[in-house]
Amino acid sequence: MSALGELRTLKGGSAPKGRRQNKAAYLFLLPWFLGLAVITIGPMISSLYLSFTKYNLLSPPKFTGLTNIERMIEDERLHHSLLVTFQYVFISVPLQLALALLLAVVLDRGLRGLAIYRSVFYLPSLLGASVAIAVLWRQLFGYDGLVNQVLAWFGIEGQGWISSPDTALGTLMILNVWTFGSPMVIFLAGLRQIPTMYYEAASVDGASRWQQFWRITMPMLTPIIFFNLILQIIGAFQSFTQAFVVSGGTGGPVDSTLFYTLYLYQRGFTSLDMGYASAMAWLLLVIIGAFTALNFWASKYWVFYDDQD
């Protein structure tokens, strides 16, 4: 069902030479080949080269060897931005997926109005990436914002959640959790694929709902959990808009919302330190690749594929 599933099951062996339709295929693929070369692979190679240069757009790139890497090792703001990003990814993604799974399971039990609930819960994931919602978030969690007004009813005096370095990142995590709708829809689709006979057989054997959930639903759903996990982690590492808008592009207060991509943007497109920004981009690629690989490796131990013979 997913790109990941495809990669996992990609099989060897090509068609016999006689059946090939090379010319037609390459014509159909021409735009894609061009894009791959000019927009994707060319720039990737070029950015790898720029990683070892000093380049500010105005004068030609100057090869500086490992200087950028040395700078990255010493750049405390970069380390801080990594820390912020890791916190964001590894706190908000599990919370988001847990909520998505919980609601998917609650909704799956033949509930009246499933379609309406599904739509309502899904809507925020369409809106969440927009500047407009980030604008709203900044006001919601401001000192005079809606959140503090509601807290005041309970006699709690709030603070400026966005303007405090201790809580600013937390508001962005809440925003990410708020967009749990799209993994929820994927979970719902996954739940529908579990054959009912498993539950029927379990009921006959006297298994409780709780046992059925842990012994049937969860194992059968692990491929979907794995898929959502990979997808959301990759996505969360690249978050940019919300932090940019909420902090006015600074990553503040006191760099507390300085996402890695935001710092990369500042280096590359505000300071025109493009060699350094390229090196940072490759580090991001390595980090995302490493976590994805780690995930794939770990999946052997907890992901159950029903289609394995």
Binding site: L7, I234, S278, A281, I288
Partner: peptide
């Protein structure tokens, strides 16, 4: 396979050369 991998490629590794 290359097509599938490019789906997951972060835009940041290409944005600087694209800008240039």
């Amino acid at each position: 396979a290359i097509m599938l991998v490019t789906i997951m490629l972060p835009i940041h590794v290409v944005i600087v050369p694209q800008y240039i």
